[in-house]
Amino acid sequence: MSNRQLEERMEREHDAQIADALGISAEDYELLEPRIEPVDSDGGTVGLDVYFDEGSDPEIIAKIPGAEIGGFKRIGYIDFDGPDEPDHI
């Protein structure tokens, strides 16, 4: 698998995790093309703000509790890398 293919696969997996947190399918998420911004605190990233522009599909936005066109939805932190592997002796 090339680096480009690996990057594309990781991006699809990240998108699927965000879609799941929003309560929509990965396909719907892809159609929205939202902008993602990290929510930072003194201890690091604590969540993500998912912004929906004016051109977002209202039928998809309606599936996301608390979301509206031109607004954003805050979701919890997603560990895209997964838990650290334990060290082996």
Rank of each mutant, 00 (worst) to 15 (best):
D40G: 06
D40V: 14
I69R: 02
D15G: 08
M10H: 09
G44H: 10
I24S: 02
M1R: 12
Q17C: 12
Y77K: 07
P34Q: 06
D53C: 08
Q5A: 14
D53L: 09
D84H: 08
L6Q: 14
I69H: 01
A19W: 01
E13Y: 02
I64W: 00
D40P: 01
G82H: 02
E54V: 09
D57G: 04
L32I: 07
D81V: 00
G23W: 02
I78N: 02
I64K: 00
G44N: 11
S56D: 02
Q5I: 00
I78K: 04
D81K: 12
D15C: 10
I18H: 00
A21Q: 13
E68L: 05
M10Y: 05
S2L: 07
L6I: 09
S2A: 07
I60G: 04
A16G: 13
R4D: 15
A67N: 01
G66S: 10
R35Y: 11
P83Y: 07
Q5K: 14
E27L: 09
G71I: 04
I69C: 00
A16K: 12
A16V: 05
G43M: 13
D49I: 02
G70R: 08
V50E: 03
E27R: 13
F80L: 09
F80Q: 10
T45V: 15
E33S: 06
E68A: 12
P65S: 11
D28S: 09
D53W: 07
P34R: 05
I69N: 00
Y29L: 06
G23V: 05
P83H: 11
D84M: 06
G66Q: 11
I36G: 01
A21V: 07
R35G: 03
V46Y: 04
Y29R: 03
A19K: 05
H14P: 01
P83A: 11
P83V: 10
D42T: 10
Q17K: 15
A67Y: 02
L48H: 13
P65Y: 03
I18L: 12
I36N: 10
I89Q: 06
I75C: 07
D40E: 14
H88I: 14
K73C: 04
G71L: 03
E30K: 15
D28W: 05
Q5R: 14
A62D: 11
D53I: 01
R35M: 10
E7Y: 11
G43P: 00
R4S: 15
A67C: 07
E68W: 04
R12G: 03
F72H: 14
